[in-house]
Simulated assay, not measured.
Amino acid sequence: MSRIRPRTPFRTAVLSGTAVLAAAALTACGGAEGSGTGSGKAAEPTTRISVNLSGRQAKAGEPVTVKLAAGRLQQVTVTDSKGATLAGAVASDGKTWTSARPAAPGTAYSVEARDTGGGTARADFATASPEKVNKLTLAPGKNTTVGIGHPLSIVFDHPVKNKAAVEKRLKVTTSNHTEGSWGWMKDYSGKDRVDWRPREYWKPGTKVTLAAELNGVDSGGEGGWFVRDYQTGFTVGAHQVVKADLDHHTLKLLRDGAVVRELPMSGGTPGGDKASWRGKTVLMSKEGTINMRSETVGLGDAYDKMVDYSMRLTWSGMYAHAAPWNKAYFGNTNHSSGCLGMSTSDAGWLYGQVRPGDPFEVDGADAKGTQAVNNGYGDWNVSWADWQAKSAAH
């Protein structure tokens, strides 16, 4: 190893029987008494340290470790090229400092170590650039207010093989210590997705934050590396639930458990693909006036309409919306192509009352089955025990 004076960069050395380490001498600010040097100068006390990562193509995804040969470390600072620091801690014996997070790919780092005697030393290294980068999409959006049924949902651009490692870096904080769990699935799009769902519907007023500390985490397989962190937060609004009864052809809006208004409706035609899904679904989005075409949901050329007050409930095309062409069936017959249809005035009123995240609880025999967990936000159709089993971190 080479002797290094204060503020001098580390040199690298190959240590026998070990990997290549960045090594340096930690030099105290004041020299010690000389001992027969013959020059009259005090000898400079030195302490050697090593860093587990070195060079310009160091392996990402590992914590940075700084080791001290003698004495005790006081502080170690690892800073990237953007000025961000890696948090870490000195071991109880004072010999080793380890970062709490891994080194990220494609990043240059500077290491500065200080011992209890006041000596300092520096080192620099850079990690290899990633061959593939994984990104994600978060819902709900940042600083939004959502209904009591909206899960925290993450969809990844590329497959995630190391699900447990990724899940451990997803930190959910709530203002009232809400119990919840992550659950993995294949999104309706075919991409990997993980949702964080409370055990029961959110309590109104709950504030939720997510810190996805993924920078430096390997997705595994062909998924690539995460090269940044993500943050989002939202607030839970009023306790609102929409109950749709397919057998009695009614739709009720309940607020804090009390019925605000009951509306006549017509659900999907039973006995085939046009039937509605039953179960606890969640209002995904309010889309206003949109063009609905039967070809997009596999129903041939049965319809092509501009539809008002459209409220999306599933990815497969189930909406609640205005359906004035079906007015003869409101309150008495299920005769739609799978959606929950109402008069224009009733749909307009409901559209103005609900927000994304409000649960729509659809019940009745005239259904084609229960909404799948990944077809929109069907998380609530899974028991709590089965939902917890979807976590990769257990």
Results as ranks from 00 to 15, higher is better:
Pro130Arg: 00
Arg122Glu: 06
Glu62Met: 10
Ala69Gly: 11
Arg122Lys: 15
Ala70Asp: 04
Ala128Ile: 08
Gly40Thr: 15
Val133Asn: 09
Thr116Gly: 00
Ala70Phe: 11
Glu112Phe: 09
Arg114Thr: 14
Ala128Pro: 00
Ala32Asp: 15
Arg48Thr: 09
Arg56Asp: 06
Thr137Pro: 13
Gly31Leu: 12
Ala69Phe: 02
Asp124Ile: 07
Ala121Thr: 07
Thr96Met: 14
Arg72Ile: 04
Ala60Pro: 15
Pro130Gln: 11
Thr107Cys: 07
Val111Phe: 12
Val78Leu: 05
Thr27Cys: 12
Ala32Tyr: 01
Leu73Ile: 08
Asn143Met: 13
Thr127Lys: 10
Lys41Leu: 15
Gly30Gln: 14
Leu68Ile: 01
Ala121Leu: 00
Val76Ile: 03
Pro130Ala: 12
Thr65Asp: 08
Leu73Glu: 02
Glu112Asn: 14
Ala25Arg: 02
Asn143Gly: 05
Gly31Val: 15
Thr120Gly: 15
Lys59Asp: 03
Thr120Glu: 12
Ala60Ser: 08
Gly36Met: 04
Ala89Gly: 10
Asp115Ile: 10
Lys41Trp: 14
Lys95His: 11
Arg122Ile: 14
Leu86Trp: 06
Gly118Ser: 10
Ala84Leu: 04
Gly31Arg: 15
Ser35Phe: 15
Ala58Met: 03
Val133Cys: 01
Leu73Arg: 10
Arg48Pro: 09
Gly88Tyr: 04
Asn52Pro: 10
Ala70Trp: 01
Tyr109Ala: 07
Ala70Cys: 06
Val133Ser: 02
Gly34Cys: 08
Thr145Ser: 05
Lys132Cys: 14
Phe125Asn: 09
Asn134Trp: 09
Gly55Asn: 01
Gly83Lys: 00
Pro140Leu: 10
Gly61Arg: 03
Ser50Arg: 11
Pro45Ile: 05
Ser110Pro: 04
Ala43Pro: 03
Val78Pro: 09
Cys29Trp: 13
Gln74Asp: 06
Ala113Pro: 03
Gly71Lys: 07
Glu44Val: 09
Lys142Cys: 09
Cys29Tyr: 13
Lys67Ile: 01
Thr46Gln: 13
Ala89Cys: 07
Glu112Lys: 15
Arg122Leu: 05
Ala89His: 02
Ala126Trp: 08
Val78Met: 00
Gly40Met: 14
Ala25His: 03
Val51Ile: 14
Lys41Cys: 10
Ala84Arg: 11
Trp97Gly: 06
Lys82Leu: 00
Arg48Tyr: 13
Thr120Tyr: 07
Pro63Gly: 01
Ser81Glu: 02
